[in-house]
Design a protein around this nucleic acid. Structure first.
Length: 754
DNA sequence: TCTTCATAGTTTTTT
DNA sequence: ACTATGAAGA
């Protein structure tokens, strides 16, 4: 294969060695995806059939991109039947085939986090537990941790360490909750995210012929981001790849950032113990970043105690130093960053820029400022398309039709659009169903037969709903996904409900539903091209629940600035990277207490810095709006970990503020750093401290005047009549085109100028 | 049963 | 700021 010439020696060796277990420790930017891609292409080229290769990636997006690259190398036909995807999606695919072996039907539902929480909430209610103590987040967290460690409800109750911790937290009935949760999901013919892994383990352990079958199929197993696998995933891999099989794992301990999700760094550290004849390859040359960026990142990660020693180096240009900028507030940070991006975008594409932050909540400020400057952007993560209410409602109809036992789906849509089936009725339905161990649907379908106490009118409403779903069910196996979805959206009334709502949100909702239909249409088309001539809605559901790439449906190619969390940035690279919010209690997160957790946060910043190819700008704000209040913050401890030789402190010449960050080591550090040197450019809007009075004036200046045209999210468009102050409140009189004259409180009215 | 209003609690990161 | 819950009124 000629293309192997494009690899360096270490990379090529790693690609060509396929005789046994293989560990590739690959530093940031060292071309590990490239190695994996070429290795698969190489195997295909050597004549290994595609369907014998299992490649597990961390995100669906990574899988898709890798497949595209492989297709370019070996052609579509050769690559078509590769098993490629996340652990969860591959497990889901296997379980669809084998569901009956585990007591599920192949139409089982996948509960997302919201469904799981809702089920847990019901359990807390049914067991009459204190919901102040038994918080759904806590419950789901513990159950998830147990599942990822392959601890079932029985073992959970017997595990001394766990029960001790539960007693300490006064969650005496935690084991009972876990047990009931498991039972309910099984009764609902549903699995949550963790179950996809747990049940795959069960399948392989308890059904030797299934294990043998999949071992035969998967002759070659390759795993990306191995440092972020958890115990359940580790066991699946071990079962599939006996010690002497063809297994190749790629990872970097310095980029392990998912321990909150059960990822166990020991999986990679102990690989050679588990697979004694494994070969090890280290990829230490970084091709992505300038020397300054690599050295800065190295100096940071050196402060971690637990790590595999590596010597990452770059032979690229030395490049600019990192820049550290301080701002007065989170808003200033967004203003300064947006302005800097716009200034630097001359002669570059906006695709080259990314803003990285620790929490999704931080995206808002950047969105606002970029929009104000007219800079196009895209956001990764946050509320993805498939998590919107109307989309979840729509898919709940599909789910319920495919799997009538799906109680969460039923609860979601039985009264949406409103059918006069209220909470009291549903309370009775739930009680009745729990007593008789019936699915909600059976109670709804035949209330009298199930012994539900409800008036005749209510019973009629319930039966009508069930009849509608059964109508849908008649079509589900004969209509293709698109036709079916369209019919359901129209006949269920959710399309009409969205269309009837003339508010801005209502219009959005309708558009989103239409976009969903378009998405399903694309899906059916795509499958057609792959040679599958009938795609039922179930196939779409199977994909959609595990889909997180919200940008799939915006396929315009306008260059855009990317906004995303550091976690979401893993595996990506950008020429110009901004890392925002380097403050104590934010980055590192306030949740982190132990040194182990702090080390993970440090790795997170390491990941962030190493995304940058040419330039990296770090910033923090001295005050930040959080939880509806202004919080003062001190600069992150990690800023002290980055060697000053590789980072330039860019700060406005301003007197030190007198609040809260005096005790920070940073304050002392700052005095010993070289004085501010002007950067190569002059900021148009320097990040300078603004006196409070001046800040207030700015707000006043930007407010509305009589005659301005504005739009309100509920009342629509209107003309400003008067802005005035009354009883200590700023008020505004507006004459709305549709809704008439109103007086609104300026502080609360969400007005936008047109 | 539905709608509206007030209050209380909450927030890390994701498959 | 945002959501989720609860009470009161329609």
């Amino acid at each position: 294969m000629n293309e192997l010439n494009e690899l360096n020696e270490a990379q090529r060796e790693a690609v060509e060695y396929n005789d046994g277990p293989l560990l590739i420790v690959a530093g940031a930017g060292s071309g590990k995806t490239r190695v994996l891609t070429y290795k698969i292409a190489y195997l295909l080229h050597e004549g290994v059939p595609a369907n014998q290769i299992l490649a597990l990636t961390f995100t669906n997006k990574a899988a898709r991109e890798m497949k595209e690259r492989i297709v370019k190398l070996v052609g579509e036909s050769r690559a078509r039947y590769l098993w490629m995807g996340t652990f969860h999606s591959v497990c889901a695919k296997i379980l669809r085939h084998e569901a009956d072996k585990l007591g599920f039907t192949h139409d089982f539902s996948i509960y997302d986090t919201a469904d799981s929480k809702s089920a847990l909430k019901q359990i807390v209610k049914d067991l009459q537990l204190d919901d102040k103590l038994y918080k759904t987040n806590t419950l789901l967290g513990r159950i998830s941790a147990a599942k990822n460690a392959l601890i079932g409800p029985q073992e959970y109750a017997l595990n001394a360490d766990i029960t001790k911790q539960d007693r300490y937290d006064r969650l005496y009935q935690m084991a009972e909750v876990y047990d009931l949760y498991t039972t309910r999901l099984r009764e609902a013919n549903a699995m949550d995210f963790d179950d996809l892994l747990v049940n795959t383990c069960r399948l392989l352990k308890e059904h030797p012929q299934a294990l043998e079958y999949y071992r035969q199929i998967f002759q070659y197993v390759l795993i990306d981001e191995y440092q972020d696998t958890n115990y359940a995933q580790y066991v699946i891999v071990r079962l599939l790849a006996e010690p002497d099989r063809h297994i190749c794992v790629v990872g970097d301990d310095a980029q392990s950032i998912y321990s909150f999700r059960g990822a166990d760094i020991r999986n990679i550290l102990n690989f050679r113990r588990d697979y004694p004849n494994a070969r090890l390859f280290k990829l230490e040359r970084n091709y992505r970043s300038t020397q300054n960026i690599v050295l800065a990142a190295n100096s940071l990660i050196a402060h971690n105690r637990n790590r595999i020693p590596k010597d990452i180096y770059s032979e690229n240009a030395s490049g600019e130093r990192l820049t550290l900028t301080s701002y007065m507030s989170d808003r200033d940070e967004a203003i300064g960053t947006a302005a800097d991006i716009q200034r630097r975008s001359k002669g570059r594409s906006y695709d080259d820029f990314a803003v990285l932050y620790r929490t999704n909540a931080q995206s808002r400020a950047f969105e606002n400022e970029l929009r104000r400057l007219g800079v196009p952007y895209r956001i990764y993560g946050s509320t993805s398309f498939y998590q919107r209410k109307e989309i979840k409602d729509a898919t709940a109809y599909f789910r319920l039709t495919a799997n009538p036992r799906d109680n969460e789906a039923l609860v979601r849509v039985i009264n949406f659009p409103a059918r006069g089936i209220g909470s009291t009725t549903m309370l009775h339905v739930a009680q009745c169903a729990a007593e008789k161990h019936l699915p909600f649907f059976d109670v709804v379908k035949d209330p009298a037969g199930a012994g539900l106490e409800a008036g005749a009118a209510t019973q009629n409403k319930l039966r009508a709903f069930a009849a509608m779903i059964e109508q849908f069910a008649q079509d589900i196996d004969t209509l293709d996904a698109y036709t079916f979805a369209e019919k359901v959206l129209l006949r269920s009334g959710i399309m009409t409900a969205a269309a009837a709502d003339r508010s801005a949100e209502g219009v959005d909702r309708k558009q989103n539903l239409e976009e969903l239909l378009a998405g399903i249409h694309d899906f059916v088309d795509r499958r057609l091209q792959e040679g599958i001539d009938f795609t039922p809605i179930q196939d779409f559901l199977a994909e959609v629940s595990l889909l997180t790439d919200q940008d799939e449906h915006t396929d315009d190619h306008t260059p855009r600035v990317t906004l995303l969390t550091v976690h979401a940035a893993k595996g990506l690279e950008f020429k110009q990277v901004y890392i925002a919010g380097l403050e104590e209690n934010l980055f590192p997160s306030q949740m982190c207490k132990s040194e182990t957790e702090i080390e993970e946060e440090r790795r997170l910043l390491y990941v962030a810095i190493t995304r940058a190819m040419e330039r990296c700008t770090i910033s923090y704000a001295r005050q930040r709006f959080r939880n509806g209040a202004v919080n003062f913050s001190s600069p992150s401890r990690f800023l002290n970990d980055i060697d000053r030789r590789f980072m330039l402190i860019e700060e406005a010449a301003a007197p030190a503020p007198s609040f809260g960050w005096r005790n920070s080591t940073w304050a002392d550090e700052r005095r010993s750093t070289p004085p501010y040197t002007p950067a190569a450019y002059e900021p148009a809007q320097p990040a300078r401290m603004r006196p409070v009075a001046e800040a207030a004036k700015v707000v006043a200046d930007s407010s509305f005047r009589s005659g301005d045209r504005v739009t309100h999210r509920v009342f629509g468009d209107g003309t400003v009549k008067r802005v005035y102050r009354e009883n200590d409140n700023d008020k505004i009189d507006i004459s709305f085109d549709k809704s008439g004259d109103k007086t609104l409180l300026l502080a609360y009215a969400k007005l936008t100028a047109i």
